[in-house]
Design a protein around this nucleic acid. Structure first.
Length: 425
RNA sequence: GGAGAGAUGGCUGAGUUGGUCGAAAGCGCUCGACUCGAAAUCGAGUAGGCGGUUCCCGCCUCCUGGGUUCGAAUCCCAGUCUCUCCGCCA
């Protein structure tokens, strides 16, 4: 949610900023609704003030034995007017909310305009491994080494699901454990949230109402007023932790991380290139999250990226960091870095972490504030998230980047204790 | 799944024969007085949001959403959540 005051004061600047995302908006109608809204509010408030005053006087008049019937009928009329104004007001507020809900976040100044092709690589770490043999793709490796059972995965969950088996399950678990240990070491608080969330959570995160089709909805029970869904990322849970709260300034920044599977419909997004575990309906991810003061969020984003990068480095995988262009950034975010590992078989860099600063966009939707001690006033916090990390792209990257001529795979050192072997063969 | 109780300010908790209630009292917190300092004591203050003619005024919010009424924390309806007991259960 953007600040409507910003649009009121300087609509052209906001319009230009959104144009960077190739979103063209015309605020004329909105501003009209906005002034109409305030006009109605004023009218309604004045009428209510009158009614409140009369409500004070009526009992006093009664006590003095005066006739109140004239006041009563006048107030009856006033109440009718209030009702009329209120219904007009709620219509207009709904229109305003709908409009505002549809607006994406304003990209940071240093975010380039344009789509994917305008993403800029800011760093590259390591080098592409060279193979003096014909390298296999991760599916071939996973199947031949007995790490993943795709067929039975589909038997259980349908297309887009798989089962980690044996050393594969241990490798997956080792990855998650490695992330968890690292974040604990760095002072982030570990959370295990529910995987089923209410509609309100999706709204605050910015997924709803626009992207309702992307998640798995649970059938609402009889008589239940809302629907729940399976979280598409732990971010959705973490951003709602402090929804409708005022956080003491001294508690900021709050640094959390959570492990959850992520459930996504991925409707229609299947590409043959992305077979295997590059894109499934369920994958494991550890998510980093921060609530900060506005002036601290830019540094916090760099910190989050550094944390995620350290993990990939610890695995010894070749990767790069990209700063996303405006159109490639998800709607709630002002700036995003992607960390992408190289997948040899498709010769592409695939996202294993996405680190974003939402600034106050989510905080506005969820009324997440803090009280500034200097001024005593409440302000919206800034929220940031970063995968740290998603396993479903790392697993293939490890298999493919670490494979050897005999079809075996070298296990990264940090994972060996849990996997139980140096080399999977 | 069955039965019952409840939801009020940072917390505890009054208020439910509708009006003087955004709300007693206590605790906590902040500031001031007293003190060498502290405790105790005394005094003052202490929710969020919206709008405006913006050192001031008005409005809204007593779980949420509707309704009744001139007027709702209080009455009616629906929903959500919490607690207790029974049953079931990892």
């Amino acid at each position: 949610m953007l600040d409507i005051n910003l649009i009121r004061q300087d609509p052209e600047t906001v319009r230009q900023a959104l144009l960077k995302r190739n979103v063209s908006v015309d605020f004329t109608e909105l501003l009209q609704w906005d002034s109409e809204r305030r006009e109605l509010m004023k009218k309604g408030d004045d009428l209510r003030a009158r009614r409140n005053k009369a409500s004070d006087e009526i009992p006093a008049m009664k006590r003095r034995g005066e006739d109140v019937s004239a006041v009563l009928s006048e107030m009856k009329a006033v109440s009718d007017q209030i009702k009329d104004i209120e219904s007009r007001l709620s219509d207009i507020e709904m229109k305003i909310k709908q409009f505002m809900d549809g607006l994406p976040n304003i990209p940071d100044d240093d975010v380039p305009a344009g789509g994917k092709e305008c993403n800029t690589v800011v760093r590259v770490w390591g080098e592409q491994p060279k193979f003096d043999f014909e390298p296999k793709d991760h599916m071939e490796l996973a199947v031949s080494l007995g790490l993943v059972d795709y067929e039975r995965g589909a038997k259980l969950g349908g297309s887009g699901f798989w089962v980690y088996t044996g050393l594969g399950a241990r490798l997956e678990w080792a990855l998650l454990n490695y992330f968890v240990q690292d974040h604990i070491k760095n002072g982030y608080e570990f959370l295990l949230p529910p995987h089923i969330l209410t509609y309100e959570c999706g709204y605050t995160a910015g997924q709803f109402p626009k992207f309702e089709e992307d998640v798995f909805h649970l059938k609402a029970d009889e008589g239940r007023g809302f629907q729940q869904f399976l979280l598409p990322t732990a971010e959705t849970a973490l951003v709602n932790l402090h929804r409708n709260e005022i956080i003491p300034e001294s508690e900021l920044p709050k640094r959390y991380f959570a492990y959850t599977p992520c459930y996504r419909r991925e409707a229609g997004s299947y590409r043959t290139q992305e077979r295997g575990m590059i894109r499934g309906h369920q994958f494991n991810k550890v998510e980093l999250f921060q609530y900060t003061k506005p002036e601290d969020s830019s540094d916090a984003l760099e910190e989050l990226v550094a944390r995620a990068e350290a993990l990939v480095q610890g695995l010894g995988l070749h990767y790069r960091v990209s700063k996303l262009a405006a159109e490639d950034i998800s709607a709630s975010m002002a700036k995003t870095y992607d960390i992408e590992v190289w997948i040899p078989s498709i010769n592409e860099y695939k996202e294993v972490s996405s680190a974003s600063n939402a600034r106050d966009y989510q905080a506005r939707r969820g009324a997440i504030r803090f009280r500034r001690e200097d001024t005593g006033k409440t302000e919206f916090v800034h929220t940031l998230n970063a995968s740290g990390l998603a396993t479903s792209r790392l697993f293939p990257a490890i298999l493919e980047q670490n494979q050897q001529a005999d079809g075996s795979v070298v296990v990264p050192e940090v994972l060996r204790e849990i996997v139980g072997t140096d080399v999977i063969r």
